[in-house]
Design a binder for these strands. Structure first.
Lengths: 138, 138
DNA sequence: CACAAAATGCAATATCATTGCAAAAAAGGA
DNA sequence: TCCTTTTTTGCAATGATATTGCATTTTGTG
């Protein structure tokens, strides 16, 4: 599915910024931070970007990839995600050498009892960190 | 062990800031962010705090508790941690209601193959999020 | 093509993070 | 205990990051 189809399916207007950002996500192999996106385009407004990402996340187009750095990154959702319902229950790998973060769809988050020590667990996040394939080859 | 004993054992000088901050960590049930510590004391310099936390982390006194927020938190290490060698291989629980983060020492991080898809995994981080005991009781 | 609704970009503001440097405090020896 | 050396602290300055309100521009619809 291309960026225009995705926007249509989510009922979003097809603006320049959205098409550009979404196209970048589709072709990108790794999760993108705000500054990654910012530097991919010569002039794009930071504030618009924040709002664009928030909209995409709400609509189930992209999901946050927590990687242990203090900067949120985002990656394309799996097909089953929709508005307010994400199913991105997989680990994320963070390379300590180049800083890139990628989705590991084949590594599911561990299943944890719903109640633990009197705490209710609603969500689990699994981060793997180490050295990525590209960095190892060098 | 009290704060002075810990400082002595790590070979750190016993300054006011270090004693105060360390005492706060010892009595605290949850992981502390920089601003948590800042607001616990009326006047304490932010920059000194950054350096104090870094020193403590290097010496194996406290460890970073990644909780999916964009603000690092810290908690006391287990006894076996020492300079440059941490063994805090446990999950952290993050309450989505009050924002607090606590160590779940009894939930170990999952063991992952050392090599996966051509990536070498050096470390795993597990975050559980939901509602904590205190918030549930209200 | 024109109008209403939505999205964008700018101004302003607040928080967070880091470095260099001078003053203050702690450690060690006499 | 006092003095000297070393370490730590706190201030100044700077830069990155994040968020809101509002006027302008763009998009969708008849």
């Amino acid at each position: 599915m291309n960026s225009i189809q995705i926007l249509e399916q989510s009922g979003l207007s097809k603006t320049e910024v959205r098409k550009k950002v979404l196209a970048l996500f589709i072709e990108s192999q790794s999760a993108l931070s705000l500054s990654d996106i910012e530097s991919a385009f010569s002039k794009i407004d930071r504030i618009t970007l924040y709002r664009t990402l928030k909209t995409f996340e709400t609509k189930g187009i992209i999901h946050k990839a927590v990687d242990g750095t203090n900067h949120p990154k985002y990656a394309m959702c799996e097909a089953s995600c929709s508005e307010h319902k994400h199913h991105d229950n997989h680990a994320h790998f963070h390379c300590l050498s180049c800083g890139k973060t990628v989705c590991f769809e084949q590594v599911a988050n561990p299943s944890i009892p719903e109640v633990l020590n009197g705490y209710t667990v609603e969500e689990t996040t699994l981060i793997l960190s180490g050295t990525c394939k590209d960095c190892l080859e060098e």
